[in-house]
Design a protein around this nucleic acid. Sequence first.
DNA 1: CATTTTTCTTGGATCGATTCAAATTTCCGC
DNA 2: GCGGAAATTTGAATCGATCCAAGAAAAATG
Lengths: 359, 359
Amino acid sequence: MASPVEGQARPIRLADIAKAAGVSHGTASNVFSRPEIVRQEVRERVKAVAEAMGYAGPDPKGRLLRAGKVNAIGVGTTEPLSYFFEDPFARVMMAGISEACDATGAGIALVSAANQEKLAWNIQSALVDGFILFCIEGGSRLVDLTRERRLPFVALELGFHDETISAIGVDNIAGGRLAARHLAELGHRRFAVLSLTLGEDRTGFVTPEMVRSAVYTGTRDRLAGYFEELSRFDIDTTKIPIFETENEENSTRAGLEAIFASGERPTAILAMSDRMAMIAVEWLTSRGLRVPEDVSIVGFDGVPDGALCDPPLTTIAQPITEIGRRAAHMILDFDGTVRRETMGVELVVRASTGLAPRV
Amino acid sequence: MASPVEGQARPIRLADIAKAAGVSHGTASNVFSRPEIVRQEVRERVKAVAEAMGYAGPDPKGRLLRAGKVNAIGVGTTEPLSYFFEDPFARVMMAGISEACDATGAGIALVSAANQEKLAWNIQSALVDGFILFCIEGGSRLVDLTRERRLPFVALELGFHDETISAIGVDNIAGGRLAARHLAELGHRRFAVLSLTLGEDRTGFVTPEMVRSAVYTGTRDRLAGYFEELSRFDIDTTKIPIFETENEENSTRAGLEAIFASGERPTAILAMSDRMAMIAVEWLTSRGLRVPEDVSIVGFDGVPDGALCDPPLTTIAQPITEIGRRAAHMILDFDGTVRRETMGVELVVRASTGLAPRV
DNA sequence: CATTTTTCTTGGATCGATTCAAATTTCCGC
DNA sequence: GCGGAAATTTGAATCGATCCAAGAAAAATG
């Protein structure tokens, strides 16, 4: 079933309507954008002509150039676009952004940069008034590219070493401490860390040297929080294995294999994301280790899925939706200043943590 | 912490660069869009000037007007924007759309129309090459508005009576039949239907008259499918209560109350969405009725959540991702024809259905 | 009916780029 | 050093609207 659409004729412009109706283009424009200032008779005539000629209404492409403002905010990531709809953390964040946009009537443009060349082009050509950047893997490339647009932008996760850009994130040190203290108080003494990325594009065990030179200060801060607190319990933090992953299945599993391959198995895992924590729960369970009887796990983020999995995840909850809302407002109400906001975090105790097993 | 940004000076234009570098704007433009055709020396000089003046690169707003193509597809709904990130059906659909867009490098613009006036404006001013419409509640207003833009658009769910618009959906009659046959074969004889909307903005029991005059033919077809098949088992379909909901908690609960208030309780529920089915499971369970021992339920859609809930949902699965992909391609590769595609559905038997209880 | 106000309309300027035919340079071979 | 081909550069036209100062028409006033 197929029917032709609107002959090949090029689309009707406002000027065509004006001519046909015998008015100036100025008046024709007013009929659509400020109808109240044109005489009723004229208004109706022009509208009738427009209708008759099949005019689609003022083309936003034209209006845009004059108006200067797009009324949409771009959300960028280096992941494929589907990330926004599938990743639990991103989804909650997007819900917050959506809320702010809905309230002001702004639209959302999703911009992905999964592959290098297109990344550049997509960021460069996005029709938006500003950007919110999901700074995950490859975040610095994304930031550099975006900076070139000279539009307002905010990095989510202020774990980015560059203090000259706006960012919103959480108090990672406090978060790390809360998680560590909770486990230490349950009697745990042997730990392992599933870490987010410290620099770019690598996975594997991390050395203290690498921690010092971390690009992502957010990751570094969480580690610092973990260790500061554990030190208070007289735990030798230099022996704690830290495995850097890409926050997805393969590298997280690899990390777990590596950690559990070595001699002294940890009784507690500090995971820097709920995603990793949930993968860890599954990995452990499938190997006959019980959570939390044999191994306790604390996640980070506080995504809704964490409450639903089995066992429900103990985690450090971020106010994700609120971060999203604020990020959107930073763009929408941009005032020309760079802002860095730090939000608080909260320990949510559920069933993935328990007393340390008797030795 | 606040630092001023780029003095108030109006942004630098390509023409400014051209003048400063002593070349024509044509050449300046070429430096950025087709660098290979300009002499290296000139190219470098212009680039240097641009760099020095802090030029942000060719403004997409300007380019757009000339180019005519936005390279983004709009996805519209009458729900708030967060719908796209929270509703399980929408999310899977968006994943399919994302895939197609990623492959071609197109962007996605989310357009919401939660409130009437803004709906119009948002649709009218969206910078996109075409629309994909989530035709749920209020779908016809959305379609009418979109039609005015005279851009290609596709309605998701071809359960829309207007055959002149492109649409992709599933074979609703077949789906209805599969669900009904499955239950009938398990011995069920007393049914109730939780229906999607037939027209606009109403909930409550439905009369045969209303079914005949349905605006949403998709809903009507599912009903037809249910009833055709049940008739084959000599079931008197005129006695089956049909309750129309808005596919959310309140109206679905109201429907269940109404259905279970009457004398003869159903042993099987035909729900037209997994969402309603899951709400029904919860409602029944909280009232001490067991699923499937006391009441069996078949959903519709096949969203991932349905496999995870307790008990896992028997459902009629749509190829949601594939529908999303195709919808995106219809817009991306638009050829001026109206297309209506019907996809197949599949019965997925899980644990929410079982043998009819002995009387 | 002339004059002042008020209400509408007009048409040129502008938003920021790209395109393309024509003009100008540069490059080659002889 | 010259003619012609090839490589660059130019600048006017265009994309589709909105804005606004100035002019024209209509309405109000005396």
